[in-house]
Design a protein around this nucleic acid. Structure first.
Lengths: 336, 336
DNA sequence: ATGAAAGCGCTAACAC
DNA sequence: GTGTTAGCGCTTTCAT
């Protein structure tokens, strides 16, 4: 099969170690032997066996990244921001998808650890009723990203979800909306809960909150469509606005609203969350909360890298990434 | 650190091999010792070291998947269809992004091979002027996906790009469009070339083709926007229709068209390619060529799996995945 | 049914 | 500068 150090060594009539030295750029090799060995390496197409090296060094230069759903464009952007950083630092990233299934997530983590990866970035599947002991037993560096897990004391990078949702709801309120429904996404996701809390707080301040305004599903176009249909059945044309907990949900809602021959924003205002790449191009262009996904991924990557390099640093960090509202055309702005 | 076979063996006062047997479900272990060992494994939390096993068995249960750009939603869907299949077969997939850079692609392939992965699925970065010797020297199973590489005799799964583009152009032609511009995407991508060929053939049949109708860029929203601006400068309002080589380009074009206060499809008809998840929700809903990305990925995965299991099978396969046109509202359909 | 020993390809420790 | 040896954690003969 592939040539090994041994093969090269015997061909060059030197010891294995000498070849190893030139492979690893150890200066303690004479110029002439180095050159000779390099030529043999070149012609034979020798490449070090990373598995063997990893076993010996206990260092694989690999990290694992687990997302709940690789089809979600926001996660892809995070992944991109993240892998860019690891690439530049000579790390490989092993990407896994938990399909929003906590058990699968645990299985992936176990496998990753068995593969001697050096660290993990995890966007958790669901964030309630999690097996905290499992997570606390994990010894390799672990950064929780985007969705928090209650009571888990690990490094994390999260969004200012509650505040952003509060601000978004305020925008609706300030422009005269009263009956505002919220499409909350996945109930078990901390992001969704935080966004709901922000919404509720703003509504409560105006004595406008009521449980029947709240809908749960998941973060998909389909769910958005269904929740909107449901809301329309429940309230008819009374709805002033909808707060969609991500832009995919908003997209589904748009579709349902159009089916009912209602106009956005004239009949119903709509605000989204995430500012996905297509959101500016919808009909109407979506007013939404912008999340710097790339930065989020890059920040998590840098944090993990730091922990990998200083495993003795037991200091837990919690980094908050800021968001901002992007005003486009799906919310009916009152002229003052 | 982690317990090893040796640790478990000494604790159980048996040989390493016996422990290895229970880990691997070898029946040749007495019930009592098996049970005893299993308990120790459980309490100590033993997990086999996959790196060591891989080194010994020369089998890592891992394959590599290289995409040109992980931010492209169509690639993500392909990845999803693909990983589903590998998951079910107990394989891990290592996802790499070449950033459309052929050299980076080669580097990733080399690394993957050094990691003893068992097969590779590759969506090539660019497909002209490629180093064929490099690819032909690759000994592990390799499936080329979505974009062909000229003159490379490897297993591949591709789309009926030319025919689909021909049909799409015909649709425009049959509905009275004469001046049709094409936004070709990445010139170096075989998919783009094939789509262009289909377009050209249909146009030629009507003596309507001219080089100035052709624009190249890449497969991004941004490129679509720029090409549309360019086309509008070149032809003003004379353009009857645009054929965008993917939906991202179409999205960018929509934006540019709106900026010019032109209406789709009344002033300009627009047809896309890919049928991305958001395309049905654009303004107007995009008429486009549907590609079953999930199937595409799954088919490639199954093909690779087959090759991994039967490495002696040197029979090269070329599987064509069919597409179909989805009529929505961005093309002005003539009433007959 | 169980075990001893060799070795996958590499690096680290310690000679020379 | 260069080489020898041991060993990472596992599986695989081949014994017993």
């Amino acid at each position: 099969m592939h040539p090994t150090l041994k093969n090269i060594a015997s061909e060059a009539k030197v010891s294995i170690k000498t070849v190893s030295r030139v492979v690893n750029n150890d200066p303690k090799v004479s110029k002439s032997t180095r050159k000779m060995i390099q030529e043999i390496i070149e012609t034979r197409g020798y490449k070090p066996n990373l598995i063997a090296r990893g076993l010996k060094k206990r260092k694989t230069n690999t990290i694992g990244f687990i997302v709940p759903d690789i089809g979600n464009p926001s996660f892809t952007e995070i992944v991109k921001g993240c892998t860019d950083v690891f690439d530049k630092n000579g790390y490989y990233v092993f990407l896994g998808s938990s399909e929003n299934n906590p058990q699968k997530e645990i299985d992936i983590i176990k496998d990753l650890i068995s593969m001697l990866i050096e660290g993990i970035i995890l966007i958790p599947a669901t964030t309630v009723d999690r097996d905290l002991t499992f997570f606390s037993k994990i010894k390799c560096p672990l950064v929780i990203l985007d969705r928090e897990i209650d009571g888990l004391d690990k490094d994390k990078v999260v969004l200012s979800n509650k505040k952003s949702a509060y601000d978004a709801t305020k925008l609706l309120l300030e422009n005269g909306c009263k009956k505002i429904v919220i499409f909350g996404g996945l109930h078990s996701a901390k992001t969704a809960q935080k966004r709901f809390e922000g919404f509720k707080q703003a509504m409560d301040e105006n004595n406008l909150f009521s449980e029947e305004l709240v809908f749960w599903g998941d973060f998909s176009i389909d769910a958005g469509y269904k929740m909107m249909k449901e809301a329309l059945i429940r309230f008819g044309n009374d709805i002033d606005a909808v707060f969609a907990c991500n832009d995919l949900i908003a997209l589904g809602a748009i579709n349902a609203i159009k089916e009912h021959k209602l106009k956005i924003p004239e009949d119903i205002s709509l605000i989204g969350f995430d500012d996905m790449f297509f959101s500016a191009y919808l009909n109407p262009p979506l007013t939404t909360v912008h999340i710097p996904f790339n930065d989020e991924g890059a920040i998590a990557a840098k944090l993990l890298l730091k922990k990998i390099k200083k495993p003795e640093d037991k200091n837990i960090e919690r980094i908050i990434v800021d968001t901002r509202i992007i005003i486009r055309e799906s919310v009916n702005i009152k002229k003052k």
